[in-house]
Amino acid sequence: MPDRRQLRTWGYWAALLVGAFVVAYAGRFLAYGPIGRGLGQGFRVSVMTADAALAAALALTLAVLMYRNMDEFGQQASRVAWYWGCGFGLVAALPLYMFVVTGGLGLVEGVSATHLAPAEAQARASIFRLGFLMPLVMQAAGFAVVRTWWSLSKR
């Protein structure tokens, strides 16, 4: 028989999955459904951005609840995994990043970007750079903020 903590964990995961589905579906329905179609790009951008913010709030809330629900062993495991796992994961992605932005995909058999005009290829490379670097920068910023807060709170 699972204990209360395990049942709460399952409950939080269920809430996360159901919540994510509802938020994603509601946002897309509003933005691209009968209402959104007639209201233009500005409306769709606003709705999808607000939808993403709502999803982030839901994820953060459940992350806090899940973390508090863990015992100290689980919390320590999460901290270690996030610190070392994410750290090494990001660093390990750097060679892949360099491979893509220097045109490596064009050298891979079956993947050819030669049909793209130079401007289009450059634009795609820029988008890839942004998509790769943004999470990196945001994670580093988040780490710096929390680390500073933690040090200051211990004075």
């Binding site: 903590r5 015992d71 689980g74």
Partner: peptide
């Protein structure tokens, strides 16, 4: 684990 309000994995570790 129940008496300490931790997981069985914690006790084992």
């Amino acid at each position: 684990a129940v008496r300490l309000d931790v997981s069985r994995q914690s006790v084992n570790a």
